[in-house]
Design a protein around this nucleic acid. Structure first.
Lengths: 334, 334
DNA sequence: TCGTTTTACGAAATCGCTTTCGATTTGATT
DNA sequence: AATCAAATCGAAAGCGATTTCGTAAAACGA
């Protein structure tokens, strides 16, 4: 591995001069700068990022804490991650997956300090563990995606308005028995969606059709299937369903099909997220589309801003969603 | 940030002694070792990994080159990645996503050298670009997942036998017009699958039913849909189809449904991969299951072995698959 | 008791780079 | 020609660890 020292020797300059030339300092003449850069290129010099971060006290690395149901197989989060990653790279940073090796005594915070990450994106659906809380309260710049509670330094989609919009769409199309399949209601996102549904139903004087549970819900296919069944058993068939995720919606569809009903003729369904699955299932699933691209882009922008500005506190960034109507909805004209 | 120096002061030892105590050197007495460790713990000392890698010349970081259709949204690769990540973490390493910032002059190889990653997993479906080739030919330990060509230092599922097994299953259940939807046939994996199909058809004296194309195929839903259509237009309806991915299989199913046929009564379908989608679509998709867990685990094991042994050359590791029969297959008893 | 191992520790070099600050050279000004 | 400011460069002190090698003290053997 060629170092700055070799370049120094070959160019008859000092190490400091080489470093400055390579980093565009102004107190190096054009001539020597050119000479040095030329030699560096010929030698295929690559600065040792490790040495750089040691002295610069910044690593150009963004950490990511990713604790999510299904892990990377979770299409929703990995869609955002994909966009985040692209943007992080565009900005010359790398993405480091942080591990929580507690047995080893290396929790997230220690890990971040050790590896000198500049900032961290925390993606953690469900209640946070101690280890994540510690990290958030630390001196390190942390941005949270879909936070557990409503806090600054976070980014998420506008759940409340999304559910209002979806319910209103069904309502405007003459649905009156609208059910809701909620996710983890103990969590900020899940709770907001449920409240939005309850508000809508109340303000439009409709029947409340949801499965009242205090337990944590996941956002899975199975959960959608089971919850739909519970709702059905208790209230009979609704004429519209809004689910908290696409997977849940598809699970609900499966149950409805199993009962011998057809979609959208007997019942309309709207999901949440807009993962690829929506286009694949039959009928194609209408959904509340989250703007993955934008979320990833903004998350990158905000986090890097926080890094630059010493972990400055920024307001939550709320991203608009878009109702996407496909084939799982029906206008009831009776 | 507490450093080794502070510990040295508080314990009246030298820096070297502290370092040795913390790293379990044998030339430190039990007594001082205990004392030092105690102080380190009280201070919440975390070794600076950057400084460590500088002098140790290893970073405990595994790089990952990930160039894949759909990126992280590709459920097949992200399933393996998920398992790989878990195993890497268990071994005390971190996962660093490498970027290929060519505009910046930082191709993969330079990037790896700069960041001092210990080894790299290359996940790159389709033909490799120059930048990846350079990396592979370098001094760095590189393991390839689903390589472009049949090479050492790689890991992949046993495509040939998989296709044989799937075709044989259909054959044994009295299917005689078996079609094949191939992926990228210019690539080792894609080519092997296609050859396996052709071999089977020939050895059983069956009609060859596949869409002959020299173009690169992706493994997408749309590709499955379109290819099924091409096959149908040319040969009429087969009685069985084996596809090169689950997404393609589901795409084919969509086309078949659109034509008004039903699965599995009119035609049996078998996919490849066994992603979650198989359980979600109707009918549930039979498939050739890849052992994601094992692949990730072995990939980790092999790569770390390569790192330890100076990039030693290891034979390709071929992972067994398993035919999983669900509802998309039918035994033809006419 | 005296020489010889062992044991336990520390000084210092090193990893590859950045950055401050002082020194020298150059050029401009009178 | 003398003076002074600006331009250009390099020495050296870090950054936070590891590791070699030398030395003092303790333990040992005869």
């Amino acid at each position: 591995m060629v170092t700055i020292e070799e370049i120094a020797k070959l160019s008859n300059c000092s190490i400091s001069t080489v470093s400055k030339a390579l980093n565009g300092y102004s107190d190096i003449s054009e001539k020597t700068k050119k000479k040095i850069i030329k030699i560096a290129n010929e030698l295929g010099y690559v600065p040792n990022a490790t040495a750089q971060s040691l002295v610069r006290r910044r690593s150009n690395t963004i950490g990511i804490v990713y604790e999510v149901e299904y892990g990377l197989k979770n299409l929703f989060f990995s869609s955002i991650l994909e966009s985040f990653r692209k943007n992080i790279e565009k900005n010359g940073h790398d993405l480091l997956f942080l591990s929580n090796n507690i047995g080893n005594g290396m929790d997230y915070l220690r890990h971040c300090r050790s590896k000198h990450v500049d900032g961290v994106l925390v993606v953690s659906a469900g209640s946070d563990q101690e280890s994540i809380k510690k990290l958030i309260d630390s001196e390190i710049a942390v941005l949270r995606l879909d936070p557990d509670i409503d806090v600054n330094n976070s980014i998420y989609s506008d759940s409340y308005n999304s559910i209002q919009t979806a319910c209103k769409y069904l309502y405007d199309n003459n649905h009156r028995r609208i059910a809701f399949i909620h996710g983890d209601r103990g969590n900020f996102i899940g709770g907001t969606r449920l409240n939005s549904y309850l508000d809508f139903v109340k303000s439009h004087d409709l029947e409340v059709l949801f499965y009242e549970s205090l337990y944590n819900h996941s956002y899975s296919f199975e959960e959608g299937y089971n919850t739909m069944k519970l709702i059905y058993d208790k209230y009979g068939l609704p004429d519209g369903v809004v689910a908290s995720s696409d997977l849940m919606a598809v699970g609900a569809m499966a149950f409805i099909h199993d009962m011998g009903y057809s979609i959208p003729e007997d019942i309309s369904i709207i999901g949440f997220d807009n993962i690829q699955l929506c286009e694949i299932v039959k009928p194609k699933l209408s959904t509340i589309g989250q703007n993955f691209e934008l979320i990833g882009e903004k998350a990158c922008e905000i986090l890097l801003h926080m890094v630059e500005n010493k972990n400055e506190i920024v307001e939550p960034f709320v991203v608009d969603t878009k109702l996407i109507i496909r084939d799982s909805c029906h206008s009831r004209l009776e």
